[in-house]
Write a protein that binds this DNA or RNA. Structure first.
Lengths: 229, 229
DNA sequence: CGACTAGTTGATCGCCGTCAAGTAGGGTGG
DNA sequence: CCACCCTACTTGACGGCGATCAACTAGTCG
């Protein structure tokens, strides 16, 4: 593994929108308590029902965070990419959570132990503002997805998912129908049917595990409550 | 309006599970920056699309917090009762949110201005732990409700709603079919049909705007992800 | 070249949202 | 006390969306 210096960490922090606006001294101190870890593709970072108190900041790769019911139904609710944090609430939570986190690609992350994280918060309360703002955005996104599930047809949900993914990751999107269906809250079959319509309209092109969004503007709806992944 | 002394405030804080475990000095300081306000039944505390930076702690009465889509579909996601906070993320958020808060009964609350709230957080970082824990529980509840919507039938959802409400408020529950349907994410008709079945099974009794849960145990399911309202 | 995975399409079926019509409680004013 | 109205509740009928099952095609990797 190549070296990842303290300076590299601070550079990452500076680019991270999560840590935007925080002073150099704080980022520098944060760098001290983080440790570089790697996960290979498909690795499980945190299993459902486990208590996980470690906080991660993604350096490279992509992490999928999902919740899973007892009957196996799963919904993906976060795709954590470079510069974004995972499990920022974990150290505060007493009970195990329903979360499951998995590496969609080979990843490197910075890990912060739960204890060190909590101590850091008390010492550097400025960062609390960033943390709660970040949680707040996720929270609003969660409830806009509930509204989506209740009142939007599958076709429209798939369109919104593709549009959001395209905004975040650009083209081509490397997702399968199963992955998309877990984001949109539907089945792979319905996902493919919906994508077939979009393809017929010329809005997207699809390949095996790849999707190109051709007409970005036509896929954006003016609805309140943009989906955040 | 009767007097509500600083001591009364601190007593309320002590009973609040939200503020559990915090030292007297902190509660005392918190009391200093809060102001008693009242709302009559049906009053709108915060309208959708407005930026609201005031934080509230409910002294008495009941507040309904809902999100609302552009087509008018509404889902209630929080019922805030005595000792519970509302809008603890608001002061941190830059953009208007989709929330709407309304007094279901005549209410008294303690109000904290957004600026004073943020200043208090920086000065008393201990309280951050309580805040994020509280948010975390709501967050998990939100995602367990997404799973519910996806895979549970209406009958079961209604049962879960009634069970959760009974745990929080006891009998009789003073809710109409419209209110319940907005919590369960369905229509009033389906809500009443589901309740009809529960009534036929002897699990509940219903009156106009009142519901008595007769068999508490039979209504509890062993599912992960308890619904929090 | 074979096996596995991803995508595609068709047929069926049941839940539940919607519309509609009718009942009953509870408050108000006379 | 009764007549009235408004709201909440109740029940029935219908229809469409989408989950599910199933069969088939087509890439990709060893």
């Amino acid at each position: 593994m190549e070296t990842f210096t303290k300076q590299d960490k601070v550079d990452l922090f500076r680019r991270s929108s999560f840590l935007h606006g925080l002073p150099f001294e704080l980022l520098s101190e944060l760098a001290e308590i983080t440790e570089l870890v790697t996960f290979e593709k498909g690795a499980v970072i945190s299993r459902i029902g486990e208590i996980s108190h470690d906080v991660f900041l993604v350096v490279s790769g992509l992490m999928k965070v999902s919740v899973c019911s007892s009957t196996g139904k799963r919904i993906t609710f976060l795709l954590v990419k470079e510069g974004e944090p995972y499990n920022i609430m974990g150290p505060h939570m007493p009970a195990p959570r329903l979360l499951e986190a998995e590496a969609l690609q080979a990843m490197t992350c910075l890990r912060i132990g739960g204890g060190a994280y909590l101590a850091f918060l008390e010492k550097q309360p400025q960062i609390v503002h960033n943390i709660i703002r970040w949680i707040g955005v996720s929270f609003d996104s969660a409830y806009s997805r509930i509204l989506d599930l209740m009142e939007k047809k599958v076709d429209l949900r798939i369109m919104r998912v593709l549009s959001s993914l395209h905004q975040k990751f650009g083209s081509p999107l490397m997702f399968t129908s199963v992955e998309l269906s877990e984001i949109a809250g539907t089945t792979p079959e319905s996902t493919l049917r919906a994508m077939g319509q979009l393809r017929a309209l010329g809005l997207i092109e699809t390949g095996r595990g790849k999707i190109w969004v051709k007409d970005e503007k036509a896929m954006i709806d003016d609805e309140f409550g943009k989906m955040i992944l």
